[in-house]
Every structure is written in C-alpha cells, then in structure tokens.
Write a protein that binds this DNA or RNA. Structure first.
Lengths: 208, 208
DNA sequence: ACGGCTCTAGAACGAGCGTTCTATTCGCTA
DNA sequence: TAGCGAATAGAACGCTCGTTCTAGAGCCGT
C-alpha cells in the first residue's frame, strides 16, 4: 500500500534511492531554502527527477503531506547530528558547542542557503496548516529530549536538564537564523560559547 | 516626492493613518503570519483598505519593496518595546527577562499567530531577494545594539556586552519561534530566566 | 477656470499554481 | 503468458499570482 519500489529496489542494491525518498529529500531541501509557500509541487517533482504523477501517487495528500514528510526527514537528519555531537564529548557543554560549530559549518558550506529545514518549512503556515505545525513541534520536542537525556546522564537534575534543553534548542535555532540573515557564523559561534557556559553554570550549582 | 497624503492629512489631524502607512502596517501583519511568499499583493491591498493602484503608486518596486518596508516597520516596533523594557529595569538582566515576558504576552494574545515579523518575512527569501535579507540583518543588528548599549551603561566590558547581545537576540528569536510552534509560552519563559542568569554571570565575572 | 499634480480605481494580461485525470509502462504472480 | 496492481507520464483545469495599464477623481497654485 504505502510500501515502496516495484521498479526500484528499496534497500539500494545497486540503484540509487527510491522515488519516494528522492521526493522527500527534494522537498526538504527546497522548503529549507524557500519555505512552504515559496516551493512548488512541480519544482519538487523536477528536483527529485520524478513526475507529477509519481509525487501524487506517493503523497495523495498533496503539498501539505509533502511538507510533513519533509519536516520529519529534516528532524531525523539533525537528530542524528545532534546525537553524534553529544555522544562524542565527555562534557555535554562541549557537545553542545560542537553542535553549534557543526551548524555553522553546514551553513557556510551552503553559502548561507541551508538554514533549519523545520523552521523555514513551518514558519508562515503554523496558523493555517495544523499538521505542519504539529510535525514541527514534534521535531523540536525530540531534539530537546536528546539534549535533556544527555544532561541527565551527566548528573543534572531532571528539571534543570529539561529547561536547559529548551534554551539550547531555542538558542541554536535563533542563532542559525541570525547567521543566515547576516551571512556570518558569528551568531552561532557566540551562541555555542554562551550555551556551554550556561550549562556549566548549572553543573556547578544545580539549584536555579 | 515620497511625501504622503494629498487627500488625507499626514499628521492625523482628524482622519486615521494615511494610505501609505496603512499599507505598510497591513503588509507587516500579513507577512508576519504568512511569510513573504504566502502573502499576496491583492491581499495586502484588501487588508489595508486600499486599491492595487494605490499600492503600486506608493511602492513601485512591488512586493519586494513592500516587504522591505514591512520589515523596517516591524523593526521599529520591537525596538521600541525592547528599549522600554531595558529602560524600565534597574538591572539589564531583569529588563531582558521582562522583554521575554512581553513577547510571550503578545504571542498568547494573538493566539500564537504573531511571531517575529522580521523572521517570518525574511526566512525563505534570504537567498533570492538580497534587499530583504539586508533589511532583516539591519533589524537584528539594531536590536543587538540596544541590548549591548544598555549592558555597557551598566558596566559590562565592551566585548562581553557585544557578545551577550548576540545571544540575547538569537535566543529570544528562537524561543519565540518555539513558542509559536508549540502554542505554549514555556520556551519564552525559560529563555528569559536563562538569559538573565547568563547576563548575571558576566556581571560577576567579566572575563570570558 | 484651468492645467497639472497626486492619488484612487479596477480591468486586463501572461505566467504559474495545486490538483485531477487518463493513458501507459513495468515487474511480479497465477 | 496473461493479467493485475504499482508506478510513471504529462496534458488539462480552474484559479490566483504579481504586474501593468488606462481612466477618473480630488486638490492645488495661478
């Protein structure tokens, strides 16, 4: 039913990714750069090297369903990077700073085109397309849970970890947008340093 | 030349705001909620109780020029609120927390529809419309300068003030977006508290 | 009274939108 | 090998988009 690939293999035996996946990736990339309203379904089809027929075959819900799938894709992508950064560092504060550096690198490498895929897709339609708002909320919530979990592992009190996770994700999000608008990684560099200090502060004095 | 109102007075003797101003305000409001691409010029004309002819008379540059004017309008609006919050508090940390509360209130009162007008207007077109990107950058830069100035007045070192201002604005921006997506003011409340602590930390130990 | 502005008014245009639709191709199973 | 459903292909539809254009209304200095 919703399974993939008759013509192309799903587990990438020798061909590239299946059509459905290509469509999701193209949607994510395009909406990341142009937002939901600025991205056309025909443009998505072209970007995915698919046809309109295929797009509506895999996503009968149309553009809205495409956006939800794209947000979930972007969510997974950043969750992996975030988990990688947090796992690689002894101190969670260092992991968070590393994540900020990683975001700055991606931003610079794309010539400041690729901001947060979730933010740019969801902003502007939070009021009119509930499914998209909900998917974006779930993305943020998941990212926060990854940070909070890592902080708790490191001995932070549950409440401190939860609240710090809110600010870590919000600040990274805001700094990424500032960096994109300024075409300068300074906002992300500074945010990483400040977040590390803030986290360190709670490690030393858990009571808020 | 670019002056206003022949039919309507510019200094609001007895009539409401002039046509040009109504158009700017409507553009700002609409793009705040629907983004640049999601907002139509005809919708702007209707929202401003003006006609298409008037819109293109005052803004011959079309939609792009409208967006730039809307961003500048939103910039001025928040700059005033920010300055008010900072001036009202003895300690800048309290002023910043008050500003977060003010944003949360506005957000809640609009039923989570009105986020940052600059962010939602600029996101998605930063790569394709340089004028809009520049206007948004100028907005963020000005807001940061207000925060930095207040911190310096309070005895912060110049570099500390400058860097803290980056994080204050980025975090408020990110938290506002998180609040909008979650339809919950928790991100803003927590961000305000954390920013106050962070600022307090630098007041006590200026060296970074 | 009148010519010369600013501003208002909305019809008209080509292009592109999201979506629907029918027809066709392909690979598997019976 | 015949048939079935998944997937591809793109023409066509009604609609709205941003912009342009012509026409008229209101006010001014002379």
């Amino acid at each position: 039913m919703t399974t993939n690939a008759r013509h192309e293999s799903d587990d990438e035996g020798d061909a590239g990714p299946g059509t459905r996946e290509r469509i999701v990736v193209a949607t994510s990339r395009l909406m990341q750069r142009q937002g939901y309203s600025g991205t056309g379904v025909k443009q998505i089809a072209a970007g995915a090297a698919a046809t309109l027929g295929s797009v509506y075959h895999f996503f009968p819900g149309g553009k809205k369903e495409l956006a939800v799938a794209a947000i979930r894709h972007g969510e997974r992508e950043f969750a992996e990077e975030l988990a990688r950064c947090l796992a690689a560092a002894e101190d969670p504060a260092d992991g968070i700073a590393a994540c900020a550096r990683s975001l700055a690198e991606g931003m610079r490498e794309s010539d400041w085109a690729d901001g947060c895929p979730v933010a740019s897709t969801a902003l502007g339609v939070t009021g009119s397309v509930p499914d998209i708002r909900r998917a974006a909320d779930e993305a943020f919530t998941h990212w926060r849970s990854l940070v909070a979990e890592r902080l708790r592992e490191h001995g932070f009190a549950g409440d401190d970890a939860r609240e710090l996770a809110y600010t870590v994700i919000s600040t990274l999000e805001g700094a990424e947008m500032a960096a994109q608008v300024a075409r300068d990684e300074a906002p992300l560099r500074i945010a990483g340093a400040h977040l590390a200090r803030l986290v360190g502060l709670y490690a030393a004095a858990p009571r808020s």
